[in-house]
């Protein structure tokens, strides 16, 4: 289902039509979930954020500009909430607990298949090791296929900053990839 087809349903859902809600959820939830899961690793946090994204979707629908692609708006909300969450997480006093969690987080965040994939997929493991600021650019650029200008717009930072982060991320990936999996990597 494309954006244009989805919009009337979304509007109905915001007015309280539950079947419209189901339809919107079905059409969007994998995308939202994956976007969040690429950027946040704790399973509980991922679910909290996905839930928040939907709340925000209903509440802010009146602010949506129909001239812009729906997905861009949706990803904007998602990224915004992830960053919100990161800020809050930063302030959390549960720092100690968090540190403890982080040590087992790598195995905790999703199911076994992912772990297996991670072992098979060196590049993915490297992406996950990038800092958030670099990773978000990589995800938006290569998973969602946004132009650097659109990413700048979404992250509300200058295009130059996006360019340099993009560049830095690729450099880092290349460097590590060459060292670790150089044989199969042809540039």
């Amino acid at each position: 289902m494309n954006d244009k087809e989805l919009l009337p349903w979304l509007e109905k859902a915001t007015l309280g039509d539950e079947s419209a809600f189901q339809l919107v959820y079905q059409a969007t939830h994998q995308d939202v979930y994956r976007t969040v899961a690429f950027l946040v690793y704790n399973k509980q946090d991922i679910e909290d954020i996905v839930n928040e994204v939907y709340m925000r979707m209903w509440r802010s629908f009146h602010k949506y500009d129909p001239n812009r692609p729906f997905r861009f708006w949706l990803h904007g909300i998602t990224i915004h909430l992830i960053q919100d969450w990161k800020r809050k997480a930063w302030r959390r006093i549960r720092l100690f607990e968090r540190n403890r969690q982080m040590t087992c987080e790598q195995f905790d965040w999703t199911d076994r298949t992912v772990l297996q994939f991670e072992m098979q997929h060196e590049l993915f493991r490297l992406i996950r090791q990038l800092s958030y600021k670099l990773r978000v650019v990589i995800i938006l650029r290569y998973f969602h296929d946004y132009a650097l200008e659109e990413i700048a717009d979404m992250l509300q930072i200058p295009v130059g900053t996006v360019k340099s982060r993009h560049h830095l991320a690729l450099k880092e990936l290349r460097k590590r990839f060459e060292i670790k999996g150089g044989d199969e990597y042809v540039y």
């Binding site: 994939f117 993915f124 998973f143």
Partner: peptide
């Protein structure tokens, strides 16, 4: 990168 992310997703 595109293929890897698509695959993982």
């Amino acid at each position: 990168l595109r293929e890897e992310l698509r695959h993982m997703a």
